[in-house]
Design a protein around this nucleic acid. Structure first.
Length: 246
DNA sequence: CCCCAGGGCAGGT
DNA sequence: ACCTGCCATGGG
């Protein structure tokens, strides 16, 4: 795993590197959050920790996944060579959903700031907490997204959507269920499925990935990327941003 | 001043 | 089913 790329490729928003080379940040919901303080060379400790083992998806067979992605497309091989191994993180589903509700029509730098203000130095607020602190939401510069986040939180808190139940559904069913939330469309649902529910076949299509498919795949559908299209997407997304694909 | 950003909704055709 | 304007806000 390349720790730096994994934590800075746009699937999570709460980690940054300090001057000593350590990666710091918080994962999980307030009350059960975990604080990270680690370096690339300390990867073994992450693998041995129960929480981070799952968070960095050491419980999945990345050898098989990478081998499936190799040799399909020249540009994908090139991206994987240039980027280093990315792990798709296994994030808390509500943290993922809430964060990506804030991501719409926005840039990663500003998303990071918004999520940080929302979390106030601790774990990501639970849906219940967000419903209770409605007025606070309007004071932290979320723009038009504050009402979407509130509605999402309300749906969870009222039990209209049971995120736990999504794991027993087919990907299509889970996607439909997520999109019943006001403010959650295909892109936000897909990010939740990939980064929060481990559905590696799901390929979120943002403005960058639309450019990628147009420029490098002759406008084809992302399904040609195969059963791990979501993993491929992460390499292509990051590589396109690296070389500033227009 | 302009345009863009890990989109989605509402309204029209 | 597809198209367009609009939504707040900060950075380039």
């Amino acid at each position: 795993m390349n720790l730096a790329v994994t934590l800075s490729c746009g699937q999570c928003f709460r980690f940054s590197q300090d001057q000593d080379g350590y990666w710091n940040g918080i994962a999980g919901i307030k009350g059960s959050e975990h604080r990270l303080h680690t370096r690339q060379c300390d990867q073994r400790a992450l693998e041995d920790d129960p929480f981070w083992h799952h968070y960095f998806s050491f419980d999945r067979d990345y050898e098989a996944i990478e081998s499936d992605l190799r040799g399909r497309f020249e540009i994908l091989d090139k991206a994987m060579d240039a980027v280093g191994q990315i792990r798709i993180l296994s994030q808390d589903p509500w943290e993922t959903l809430g964060s990506f509700i804030l991501s719409q029509n926005n840039n990663i730098k500003r998303i990071r700031g918004m999520v940080e203000r929302l979390c106030r130095g601790s774990g990501f607020p639970s849906a219940e907490e967000i419903v209770q602190c409605k007025d606070f939401l309007c004071t932290i510069g979320l723009g038009f997204r504050d009402k979407y986040l509130y509605c999402g939180a309300a749906s969870i808190a009222q039990g209209k959507l049971d995120l736990k139940a999504l794991s027993t559904m087919s990907t299509e069913e889970a996607r439909k269920a997520l999109m019943t939330i006001y403010g959650v469309g295909p892109k936000v649902a897909d990010c939740t499925l990939l980064y929060g529910l481990g559905r590696y076949e799901v390929c979120p299509m943002d403005v960058w990935m639309k450019r990628v498919m147009e420029a490098w795949f002759n406008g084809e559908s992302p399904s040609i990327l195969g059963p791990y299209a979501g993993v491929a997407q992460q390499y292509l997304f990051h590589y396109a941003r690296m070389i500033d694909l227009k």
